[in-house]
């Protein structure tokens, strides 16, 4: 059957319109970051001469010789930004692993044990999700002051390893992914509670472990207000605070600020691309079901 010419025309218009709008969205997504990366390799004079990459006179070829690693050199040699990178990696991974373990254990207990107080604990977890973080900022700071934990990594890690929504997520994951028969079987085989958890439960909730590790890792990496409030010594600053310090201390040195921002964003982007499959689908599925 041949569609009418008019219909074919509107179809083509719709095709063209959707594709160009999507292309526009992709461009708007990419351009700021691409510009940032390109500009971080420029000298101060070059900022004014080209918007993206420097071109040779009268041609479309990129003039690579006008690009420089200078900003990165200064970033790691003069400012010691590598320290911030190491601090961020350390804080994010330690918090991520501890929080995941803590929440998986708690979620498993709430989902697959019968005990007095389970209802109360579940209600507590659900209610805690409502508390906005900024409310606890000042009293949390006072607590860390009294415990002598200000300006320490422990003061950042300990409050972050018990997020209530994590327990909730793992409770859901265990309810839907760990059959009771399997737990009974493990018990009949003589496995202790801890062994059952490690060998039977954890492998069954692996997708949630991946998603939650990623959420926590990113959350700590991107957290600014926590380390800004808790830490005082510059050698303990993670990237989020270190990059803000660049803006304070080197406010007219755009190259340095750009390089610092690129170094802070890139690891997260690489990690995201490596783990994206489970992450995006898991997140969306959780929203629709929840």
């Amino acid at each position: 059957m041949n569609p009418q010419p008019g219909l074919r025309f509107t179809r083509f218009t719709a095709w063209l319109l959707t594709r160009s709008l999507l292309l526009l969205a992709v461009l708007i997504t990419f351009i700021p970051f691409m510009w940032l990366v390109a500009a971080s390799f420029k000298s101060n004079e070059e900022f004014f001469r080209s918007t993206f990459l420097p071109m040779r006179e009268g041609s479309w070829a990129v003039d690579w010789s006008r690009l420089t690693f200078d900003a990165y050199k200064r970033l790691f040699v003069e400012v010691d930004f590598g320290r911030g990178l190491i601090n961020s990696i350390f804080l994010s991974s330690v918090t991520g692993v501890l929080a995941t373990l803590c929440c998986a254990m708690g979620g498993y207990a709430l989902a697959r044990f019968n005990f007095k107080g389970r209802g109360f604990c579940t209600a507590l977890v659900l209610a805690a999700v409502l508390i906005p973080g900024p409310l606890l900022l000042a009293p949390g700071y006072q607590l860390l002051y009294n415990l002598g934990l200000l300006d320490s990594f422990a003061g950042l890690i300990l409050p972050a390893i018990a997020p209530a929504f994590g327990v909730f997520l793992f409770r859901q994951a265990v309810l839907s992914g760990v059959p009771t028969d399997l737990l009974e079987a493990a018990r009949i085989d003589g496995a202790g509670e801890w062994r059952t958890f490690m060998v039977v439960v954890l492998p069954l909730v692996r997708p949630m472990i991946g998603t939650f590790l990623m959420i926590t890792f990113l959350g700590v990496w991107n957290n600014f207000i926590g380390p800004q409030v808790v830490l005082q010594s510059p050698d303990k600053f993670p990237l989020s605070v270190a990059v803000a310090e660049l803006k304070r201390g080197y406010y007219s040195d755009y190259g340095l600020q750009m390089a610092g921002t690129v170094v802070s964003i890139l690891p997260v982007m690489i990690l995201f691309l490596l783990m994206q499959k489970d992450f995006v689908s898991g997140l969306a599925a959780g929203a629709v079901k929840g």
């Binding site: 708690g106 207990a109 018990a162 958890f197």
Partner: peptide
């Protein structure tokens, strides 16, 4: 179950419930 919950409950009590009361 309480042993499984304890790491969460201790951290939660110290760093969420207590600051909430302090607030």
């Amino acid at each position: 179950p309480w042993l499984f919950l304890s790491p969460f409950l201790i951290c939660f009590a110290v760093f969420t419930v207590y600051p909430l009361i302090q607030a």
